[in-house]
Amino acid sequence: MSETADFSKGLPAHPERATTEGKNKFVGFWVFLSGEVTMFATFFGTYLAFETVRLQVLKPPISSPCPLFLL
């Protein structure tokens, strides 16, 4: 845990408090990450949507993947 308890004034009354905070940060971090999933999905989704339109309109018979990645 990044939270280092300050024991200079004696032990805290609830040593388990530190563990609760660790657990909070742990759960909060994962909840935040799952939110990021949807955010980046929106970006990817927008890109893929444009890509679909492009493929449907242009229908390019690309045989090699290299141009896609500017190789």
């Binding site: 799952s34 999933v37 949807t38 999905a41 929106t42 989704g45 893929l48 679909t52 339109v53 309109v57």
Partner: peptide
């Protein structure tokens, strides 16, 4: 998150097209 997102992306791809 994944469960919600996959239909969304699929729908976006299918719906935006011509």
């Amino acid at each position: 998150g994944l469960f919600l997102v996959i239909p969304t992306i699929v729908a976006l791809m299918l719906l935006i097209g011509v």
